[in-house]
């Protein structure tokens, strides 16, 4: 029994090295003092971190990414919270179909979504690129908002909502005073997961770039095509720190079980 577990443990260790090793390597190379990416790095320097801010497009696209993710998140919340609420609160005919429709943006290939949105949002509907970008990101955040909030509503005792109504609170006041405070952590987790999803998105943003408009991941892709210096490694390091912090908050708020149940 022990023997087998040691074998299994060793195997798992190797798989984890495969998963995390590249991320550690790229973190290490970000401190390279030279101009060529190297592992192990030939010394220690923070110059590539400074370089991030010298290449104007990085701070600029970072700002775009943040604004799009936050605005899109807000929009997705406005659309998604009522839908998630309706889908968990009531049972009605066609509910499964509606659920499938709301979750479908995850299923449709991102690159297809991006292309069809370019084709119709920008070209046919004549929306400005920035608006198209925002809408595209809202679409891909919606399923995450609905799924995470839906799962936190699934353990919600709707009798407390009726209790508030019977005590004289109207439907809206009931929602804000009683339902919302009790699913607060689910909502924050949903916002964070959707934020990461949008912030890291390539497939939609790829098609929604225009003069002065691009997101950080797209700018990173473009940069990598032209330069192979450690700047991207430095940005990666910063992004991973951001990811780790957000993931820690998500774990505190609702555990990681959301990821393992589908």
């Amino acid at each position: 029994m022990r023997n087998k577990h040691i074998g299994l443990g060793l195997f798992s260790l190797l798989v984890y090295i495969f998963l995390l090793g590249p991320l550690l390597i790229i973190s290490a190379t970000s401190f390279e003092p030279g101009t060529v990416l190297k592992f192990p790095p030939s010394g220690f320097s923070l110059q590539w971190y400074q370089n991030i801010f010298k290449v104007e497009l990085f701070p600029q696209t970072f700002k775009t990414s943040i604004v799009i993710s936050l605005l899109g998140n807000l929009l997705a919340l406005l659309l998604g919270v009522p839908a998630a609420y309706a889908l968990s609160r009531f049972s009605f005919r066609g509910k499964d179909t509606l659920n499938a429709i709301f979750l479908s943006p995850v299923l449709i290939p991102g690159i297809v979504l991006g292309f069809t949105m370019l084709k119709y949002l920008i070209v046919v509907y004549h929306l400005p690129i920035y608006t198209g970008l925002l809408i595209g990101h809202t679409v891909i955040m919606l399923p995450f908002i609905i799924r995470v909030i839906g799962s936190s509503l699934s353990s919600f005792d709707f009798a407390i909502e009726e209790a508030a109504l019977s005590l004289g609170a109207g439907p809206l006041r009931t929602f804000f005073k009683v339902v919302l405070p009790n699913i607060r952590s689910g909502i924050i987790a949903a916002v964070l997961i959707a934020f990461l999803e949008s912030f890291n998105n390539v497939d939609i943003s790829l098609f929604m770039t225009g003069p002065g408009i691009s997101t950080l991941p797209i700018q990173m892709l473009t940069y990598v095509e032209n330069y192979f210096d450690p700047t991207i490694a430095a940005i990666s390091m910063l992004l991973m720190i951001l990811t780790a912090v957000l993931m820690f908050v998500i774990e505190r708020l609702m555990g990681l079980s959301y990821f393992t149940k589908r």
Binding site: D157, I160, E162, A163, L165, S166, G168, A169, G170, T174
Partner: peptide, 16 residues
């Protein structure tokens, strides 16, 4: 409901 002024006691208590 919220205009009736009836008190309701639930099976699950339904405390906030």
């Amino acid at each position: 409901v919220n205009k009736r002024n009836f008190g309701f006691v639930f099976q699950s208590y339904a405390l906030f």
